[in-house]
Design a protein around this nucleic acid. Structure first.
Lengths: 204, 204
DNA sequence: CGCGAATCAAACTGAACAGTTTGGTTTGAC
DNA sequence: GTCAAACCAAACTGTTCAGTTTGATTCGCG
């Protein structure tokens, strides 16, 4: 089998999408490989031609998702933060994007999968570590660093300042989102802006 | 069978403890009922005398844990917060207790179980909702409310102010704790005090 | 002691499911 | 058209596990 051909890559992708749908729908252990195959519109055997095992497939799928998040992330590095109005605007936007993006049903299901499977699937643990702290937190921290260099915020510990900003968003996601599957109450713009205002008071 | 007798209650409790140990050790789906029975030092059949099903047992055990957390929680209602020094001291203590308590291996495992099983076990969902937001958040919020009445903090939105305080702690628990089973890096006192200081600046 | 309730160990049932095998069908390159 | 690679459906294997059944044993109370 020539698994590098264009056709093979397409099949791989087709399987990935079906698997993702199945996992999001019923969780990892809840989705049988028969069901995954059905979702992907592929025979069960073909699954095993392209992926060694269920765990292999899971890691591959989630790894792909996480990598693709990078592209959808706002280009924080380009945004000017040389005065307070700029910083305020950037933080507001980050808050909005975070909340609307992370609190979608799909993403909440993804979180559930990560947290549940991380303990027993080393590959996922590695993906989470490389991503959430290393990429996402670092990106926010970089914004704050530039703001600090420009004298917009005080000389605070940047890691803690980042956590103070991310934290309230996490309360929305984990306390409200995960606890109410199907009926998630997403905070509105005004509420998020208030969080930013409260936050700015701490760091300026 | 007289399931209300003293003896029966003791057996129930014995089973609960064994089940908790088994669940923490291997997760819910990872712990077979045979293993639970072994951990409890009880025959498998006795398990089913006292609990209708595995799900029943799970809900009962976690419900008990969560209820018992109340007793271990610091008595925030008694603490005076009529000046800044008081408030600072109370918040520092809350932060320390939260972190040392929530970031223990057992509690991280509990979180993992809750998040993973909540989606498919309605009983757990109810327990989580009644507890985490209703009890824990409310308790911190009550402290802030008294501080606000005493004029120690500004006239801020109390829900958001609570989230701003809880949030950074959640980053430690969820970003650092859940991602590094076995090698959790707990933030030290100084670091937590810095968080409190940063926080106080936002609300005073 | 003696009796009934509680408990035990162990085998069993039935279902679910990851992964494999088989044997037949489609696809596309030449 | 032909041939091999890719694919498919379906049956099969071996295992795991929740929950049940059985039949013997222990415990506590009178």
């Amino acid at each position: 089998m020539e698994l590098d051909s264009r056709r093979a890559q397409a099949k791989r992708e087709q399987i990935r999408q079906g698997a993702l749908a199945a996992f999001l729908e019923s969780g990892v252990s809840g989705a049988s490989m028969d069901h995954v195959a059905a979702c992907a519109g592929v025979s069960k055997q073909t699954l095993y031609v392209y992926f060694r095992s269920k765990e292999d497939l899971l890691v591959d799928v989630l790894g792909g998702i996480v990598a693709s998040l990078d592209e959808r992330a706002p280009l924080l590095a380009d945004r000017p933060v040389t005065d307070l109005a700029h910083l305020r605007e950037v933080l507001r936007e980050v808050a909005r994007v975070m909340i609307t993006h992370l609190m979608s049903d799909d993403n909440l299901a993804l979180f559930r999968i990560f947290i549940a499977e991380m303990a027993t699937t080393p590959g996922l643990l590695a993906i989470w570590r490389e991503t959430v702290p290393a990429r996402f937190l670092a990106r926010v921290e970089a914004v704050l660093e530039r703001a600090r260099e420009a004298g917009v915020i005080r000389d605070v510990d940047l890691d803690l300042a980042t956590r103070l900003f991310i934290g309230p968003m996490m309360t929305f996601v984990f306390l409200d989102g995960l606890a109410r599957p199907g009926e998630v109450l997403v905070p509105n713009r005004k509420r998020l802006d208030e969080v930013v205002e409260l936050y700015l008071r701490a760091v300026t």
